[in-house]
Amino acid sequence: MNRRRLVDYVQLGFYWLSGLSVLLVLLAIIAYLVWRGGPQINLEFLLERPRGTPLGSAGGIFPAIKGTLWLVFWALFFSVPSGLVTAVFLSEYGSRWRIAGLLNLMIQSMAGIPSIITGLFAYALGVVQLGWGISLLAGGLALGIMIFPVIAVSTRDALQAVDNNYRLLACSLGVSELYALRRIILPRAMPGILAGILLATGYAAGATAPIMVTAAAIISSSSGAIFEPVMALPYHLYILFNEHISMDNAYATALILVVILLIINMMVLWLRSWQERIKQK
């Protein structure tokens, strides 16, 4: 075996090793959660509200699941339309306007803001200034601000990944740029855009800090009323763990949260492969 071959093998081995270790960490987390939390999970745990003293030591987590879904809904409500519009501006008109560079920079920096600070901002604005109180709406706003840069950037990149010649061909036929965008560019970028939104959804579903100060309650029916506080999976988990209420239930809650996130990420992967298939067409 000559030297170059040896170097190749070492390199390949290194890739395998690092890939495997990442996979191992992930599997270890899931296995541990299944081992610790799995036995608690049953229909009652999924469909009942928390009970027992202290609260949460018995019963289930249904309002937390519901609350997380509501929070995600409002987060998307606040971030998807604005994120899409921003992305379209950046990708389609960006090169012609000087403020686009500034906007890019701002979005980049926004992505770097620690989520607790986003939460405090939403607290100051929504909870205090606008008088919403600790509420679903304020939590949705906090999460929305948090995931806005994710959506804007991923959508911008998905749009920019569309072959520029399509814009050229379409516009050469005398149609407006917006028409070309609607009929050609957006459909073509759609899987990538949806993947970005889903990724952001997962990010919002798992975030704890922004909702701690804006929306989360230890107990709530999470009815969906926008000015009421809600329960949320990550916060519930935090409470169970931090107040030593029930380690077993904490792990079970974590398992449910992770399963939800895994499902979301699987959908992202599937959308990505869909995008690849579209590209080859």
Binding site: N165, Y166, A170, S172, L173, R188, I278
Partner: peptide, 25 residues
């Protein structure tokens, strides 16, 4: 652009059906 039509160097179809390609304009 409507008055001055142009066929480009790269053979590329719009990502639509053959029929809709013709009808795009």
């Amino acid at each position: 652009r409507k008055q001055v039509g142009m066929v480009y160097q790269i053979p590329l179809a719009l990502p639509l059906s053959i029929r809709e390609n013709v009808l795009f304009g």
